[in-house]
Amino acid sequence: MERENQTAITEFVLLGLSGLLELQALLFLVFLMSYIIALTGNLFIFTLTLADPALHTPMYFFLRNLSFLEISYTSVTLPRMLANLLLEDKTISFTGCATQMYFLLFFGGTECFLLGIMAYDRYAAICHPLHYPCIMNNVRCTVMAAVSWLSGIFMSFGQTSVIFILPFCGSHEINHFFCDIPPILKLACGDTFLTEIVVFIVALVFITFPFVLILVSYLLIITTIMKMPSAEGRHKAFSTCSSHLVVVTLFFGTGTVMYLRPNSAYAPDIDKLLSLFYTVITPMLNPIIYSLRNKEVKEALRRVITRMCFLNSGR
C-alpha cells in the first residue's frame, strides 16, 4: 500500500509565476517577444552560415551547431512557459515532465561541450595559425561536434533516469517554470542523498571539464595575443574571442550556481531568476553578440542579399 501511494502521482503542476497574477499578460508578451527574437536570430545565424561559402569554416560550423542548440533549447521550455501564463490548467504529465527534463539536459549538456570546443578552435586559430587547417580539418570538426551531441544524449538519459525512478508522494506542485532537476528532487520521497551525489558528479564533469578547457585555451590565447607586435592584430584577435567569452560567462555562470550546489540550498525564487538567463536571455543574446560585433557575418549578409537581388533581377 505504501508503494502504491508513492507511485500514485501521474502528473505535476508547474506553478511558474502563479503568484503574480496581475502581471501574467505582461509576462506573456515579454516571453513571447524573447522567444521570437531567439528563434529569428538563431535561425538567421544558422541559415547565413549555410548560405555563404565564406562562412564554411570550423568557427562558423560550431556556431551553426550552437544556433541550432539554442533554437531547440528555447523550444523545450518557452512554449510551455507561455501556455502556463495563459491557461488555468498548469498540469504536465509524469511522462511529459520526464521528457522535458531529458531534452533540457540533452541540449544543455551538449552546449557545455560545444562551448569548450569553440574555445579550443579559437586557441588553434590564434596560437597555431599555420597549422590551423590541419588541426581543425573537416573530419575532426565533425567528430568533435558528434562527440558533443552524443555526450549530451547519454548524460541526459542517465540523469533523467536516476531522478524519475525515485518515488514521489505528497505534493506534486513544481515551484518552477519547467521540469528541472532541483525542484523535482524536492518532491521525491525518502532519502535522495545518493541521487544528489550522482547528479552532482555528472554535472561537475559536464560543467568543469569544458570550463577548464575554455580557461586554459583563453590563458594561452591571451599570452599569444600579448606577444603580437601589431596593435591592430591584437585588437582583431581579442574581438574574435570576446563574443564567445560573453556567452561562456552567461551560460556557465548560471549553470554552476544551479547544478553545483547542495539540494538543501535550493531557493525557488533565485532559481527561477537564474533559469531565465540560460533559457531566455542567453539564447536571445547569442545571435546579437555574434552578428552585431562580427564583420564577417555582416559582409556575408551583404553578399547573400546582393546575390538574391541579382537573381531576382535576372528573372
Rank of each mutant, 00 (worst) to 15 (best):
E232K: 13
L78V: 06
F94E: 04
C169M: 07
E11N: 12
I201H: 03
S75K: 01
G41T: 13
I92R: 10
M118C: 02
Y73A: 08
D89M: 10
C141P: 02
T57W: 10
L104A: 12
T223W: 13
P287G: 15
A237S: 13
V76P: 00
T10V: 11
Q100P: 00
P268K: 04
T254G: 09
N84C: 14
P167V: 01
A83R: 07
C169N: 08
D180G: 10
M144R: 11
G233N: 06
T223L: 14
D271T: 08
N294L: 13
L130S: 08
V198I: 15
G170W: 07
E11R: 15
I288H: 09
C179Y: 03
L130A: 11
L78S: 03
C169Q: 12
I201F: 08
A203C: 05
L32F: 14
A300H: 01
Q100T: 11
Y266C: 10
L274V: 12
L220M: 01
C189S: 00
S242R: 11
S148P: 02
F107V: 09
F94N: 04
C241N: 01
R122D: 03
L27M: 14
H131C: 09
V143N: 00
L27W: 12
R80V: 08
M308R: 09
S275N: 07
L105Y: 04
P53D: 02
A83V: 07
G19P: 02
E111G: 09
P182W: 08
V198W: 07
S72H: 04
S291D: 02
D52N: 07
I71D: 00
F31M: 03
M308V: 04
M136S: 01
E196T: 13
F157K: 05
A8Q: 11
P210E: 04
L105C: 08
F68H: 02
S275E: 02
S72K: 07
V212W: 06
I117H: 02
V216H: 05
G19L: 10
R3I: 15
M136P: 00
L55D: 04
V30C: 07
L17R: 14
Y120T: 13
T40K: 12
G41N: 10
T74F: 04
S93V: 10
E70D: 07
S72A: 14
N312K: 11
L14E: 04
H56F: 04
L250S: 09
I184W: 09
M33R: 07
A25R: 12
H128L: 13
S72E: 04
A124S: 05
L194S: 14
L285R: 05
Y102S: 05
E2W: 01
A25V: 12
F238C: 07
T282F: 05
L14R: 11
L21S: 15
V13K: 10
L150G: 04
L105P: 00
F211S: 13
P53C: 06
M155Y: 13
I222R: 13
R80L: 09
M1F: 04
F177T: 12
L185R: 06
L17E: 12
M118L: 06
T160E: 01
R3T: 15
F44K: 07
T95S: 14
F31E: 00
T208H: 07
